[in-house]
Amino acid sequence: MKVLPRQLFQNVIVVQYVGLVVVTLLTLFGFQATFGNVLTGANLEVLAMNMVFEGIMALGMTFVIITGGIDISVASVFAFAEILVAKLMVQAGLDMVTAIVITLVATAAIGALNGLLIVLFRVHPMIITMGTLLTLRGINLAITDGHSVSGFSDVFLFLGQGKILGVNVPIVFFGIAAIILGILLGHHRFFRQLYFIGGGERAARLSGVDVNRVKIIIYTLSATLAGCAGVMAAAKYGAAHWAHGNLAELKAIAAVAIGGANINGGSGTIGGTVLGVIFLAVVHNAFVTSAVNTFWYDVVSGMMLLIAVLLSRFISLRNARALLVLKQGKMDQLSETYKS
């Protein structure tokens, strides 16, 4: 038997991503032609910075969604990280590195707690992470008394406002994280397990996948990425505030969904998520550059989510139909041969 190299088994997916890229570019150039001021360096930078924190959360969300779960607590973890890192540096006087490390460990612990409660209670992840979302938001409010915390050192501010080779640090982080996590998700044995869990948890268990352990790690990773985003956001805004990142979880989920992941689990890629993030960023930016009445933004973004899922549903129905055509063809062929 001929041994082929493992096909980039998502050849098909590569093709479909091209579609997303094309439309994103069309939107960009379309608005540039109509309104101008889109393809300026300054605007592109703003465009990217606009979704970068949600984008970082979307990376972790991709993992969670592939396992068939969901993590809606990321937005409050994000704000919590902002507040904690700020309090540690400004109020407790810790040095920057220590403060960041403690913050990331704390957010990881929250994620681990999410994962632990999910595997322990065997309740839908949405309920658990919703509980975390509401509780943590309340805690964020309470420990800051509703005030923002600020007064960072310039070195810290560099993490949010500085540039490396002309690119903003959070964007660099997002890019590097996406590349590393993308490679790991595609080719690392630990991350490959996610597809098995999302495809069928029982089967994965029987194959020796330690489902509980993997889940806990994945929720930990998701929360830690939200924590990283939070730390950089504190630096970007120069202040930590409990209301920062409100509803970011929905944007992150939307990016993952538009990027082609199945919310039921079992499929999804980092590449797709990145494209989804870029697409949402471009659309949001289009609203600003076109100076449309921004009240419409909610309507359109809701519509977009609906249309996205609707179309993906129709396409999958069409694919099922195509499969039937194929089968019918085989059947006809068989009966022909048999007759003769």
Partner: peptide
């Protein structure tokens, strides 16, 4: 009950873990 994942290749299923 089969414990394979439909979205992965035969080889990946065989060498899971």
């Amino acid at each position: 009950e089969l414990s394979l994942v439909p979205n992965a290749t035969v080889a990946e299923n065989m060498f899971l873990r």
